[in-house]
Design a protein around this nucleic acid. Structure first.
Length: 271
DNA sequence: AGGGTGACCTGTCGGC
DNA sequence: TGCCGACAGGTCACCC
């Protein structure tokens, strides 16, 4: 479910409410990804100071260390004063002085990892290679083009790799490439400066619009306060194979890149 | 180092 | 109805 917009929507939906909460108990379900050490008993009694986001990771800053939460493919958080009894896919829960924070993740590709700090090797392994934040000041058009020039893979796969720019997943990669008029199979290194700058703008505008719409809810995504997203209703290409392009009427096509589906318009994406 | 592949998991859907 | 393969919002370890 979660690309940058969904993760950010999730963050915004509980960050203010959980700030200052003291962790009173931890409940674990089945193991998630990267069981990097057992969550330390020190978690108990720790106070959540703020919630940040880096790429698709949520970072809960505690008064001792930080908790990295990744939603994987199927994860979502819920945060409320009370929640229904945990189900078979609820694999992590914090009981705090201000309510319950629960991770629901059927496929268990998500992760909850504690690190002493961001300099901790555990945190660096997960965050250290990440590219720039697409909605931040560090996402520069010229630097983006120069980074792309060094990569011979297909532009779609370079976007997904996340080491140049973070947060763009399978939905928004297809959408941004459509908005920029670029064929997903084009080698990243062959983008002109003008096209790279257009893609830079497209990534920003697509992610910002998705954020405004509360993210995309394809199956079961919802924010920590239970709200679903609506961006999927205005997707131009994602999950629209065989349907007419909303811009030109041509039939939306699909192909596989790195075992992921890519959607594109053969008439609008010609560069 | 960049690039390609398989692996991790569970649920759902379409076809036979 | 039942079974079986393909596919689903991500990312890492592992090869060359």
């Amino acid at each position: 479910m979660p690309e940058l917009p969904e993760v950010e929507v999730t963050r915004l939906s509980f960050a203010n409410r959980i700030a200052g909460a003291r962790i009173e108990a931890v409940r674990l379900g089945k193991p998630l990804r990267w069981p990097l050490g057992v969550l330390p008993a020190a978690l108990q009694g720790a106070v959540v100071q703020q919630v940040r986001r880096r790429g698709k990771y949520l970072l809960l800053d505690l008064d001792r260390g930080l908790l990295l939460i990744h939603l994987g493919m199927s994860g979502s958080l819920a945060y409320a004063g009370a929640l229904p009894p945990p189900g078979p896919h609820d694999h992590f829960e914090l009981a705090t002085s201000r309510g319950l924070l629960r991770l629901h993740d059927p496929r268990r590709f998500g992760a909850v990892v504690w690190a002493a700090s961001e300099a901790d090797p555990v945190a660096r392994k997960l965050l250290g290679h990440l590219g720039v934040e697409p909605l931040g000041d560090g996402f520069d058009p010229l630097a983006f083009w120069q980074a792309l020039r060094a990569r011979r893979s297909a532009i779609k796969q370079v976007l997904l790799a996340g080491d140049i720019v973070v947060g763009v997943g399978n939905i928004y990669a297809s959408e941004a490439l459509f908005a920029a008029g670029i064929q997903p199979t084009l080698s990243a290194s062959s983008l002109s400066q003008a096209r790279a700058e257009r893609l830079h703008g497209a990534i920003r505008s697509v992610l910002a619009r998705a954020l405004e719409q509360g993210g995309s809810t394809l199956r079961d995504f919802s924010s920590a306060e239970g709200k679903t997203g609506h961006f999927q209703l205005e997707a131009m290409v994602y999950d629209r194979a065989g349907q007419p392009c909303r811009a030109c009427g041509a039939t939306i096509q699909t192909l596989r890149q790195g075992q992921r589906s890519t959607y594109f318009c053969p008439d609008c994406q010609t560069f």
